[in-house]
């Protein structure tokens, strides 16, 4: 059930990524698929993070024009490490989650761009500003998603209780 949920979340993130990019002028910086991988890793641990990273990364690679496996490898490692951090440290507060999403994006960029540079397949120039921009965007989206997922059920429940009291 959880596997199906994560697979659906990954596909939804990919569809959203490819659809939103059409309507947003310029370069879209947020990587929704990476956000899903880190989210899953923090929620369910390193093995889930690793498997989600592998699935999401390979799917993203297959749909891009790059080498299949580079994004997969980057997301596998990031998913695993984010899961390890999620189990070893307390990351239940928004600032700590923000840091994890931020660091995960930077690590992903280092592995992804590093491998492309190492293999001589793509020159990314000096992408420091763009990586930091993407890390910030992913961290904001990831943190907000966590907060929304945690606060939404409570808010719905409170609203239901208030309605019942009024009756």
């Amino acid at each position: 059930m959880r596997i199906a949920g994560l697979a659906i979340a990954t596909v939804v993130a990919l569809v959203a990524q490819t659809t939103l990019a059409r309507f947003v002028s310029g370069t879209i910086v947020v990587d929704l698929v990476l956000v899903v991988v880190v989210y899953a890793a923090l929620l369910a641990g390193p093995v889930t993070g690793l498997l989600t990273g592998t699935f999401a990364g390979l799917l993203q690679d297959a749909l891009s024009i790059g080498v299949i496996g580079i994004g997969g490898l980057a997301k596998t490692i990031v998913g695993f490490l984010a899961g390890v951090i999620g189990t070893q440290f307390i990351v239940s507060q928004a600032p700590s989650r923000f840091v994890v999403f931020f660091a995960a994006t930077v690590l992903h960029a280092v592995i992804f761009m590093g491998l492309y540079q190492l293999l001589g397949l793509r020159d990314f120039g000096a992408p420091y500003g763009k990586v930091l921009e993407q890390a910030f965007a992913n961290a904001v989206v990831g943190t907000v998603a966590f907060q929304a997922a945690e606060l939404l059920p409570g808010a719905v429940e409170r609203r239901r209780m208030n309605r019942m009291r009024r009756r």
Binding site: Q17, T19, V29, S64
Partner: peptide, 15 residues
């Protein structure tokens, strides 16, 4: 007609 954009921000492609 263009029906989709890139799956990752690191590539500039359309479908």
């Amino acid at each position: 007609e263009i029906i989709g954009a890139a799956s990752t921000p690191d590539f500039r492609t359309v479908t």
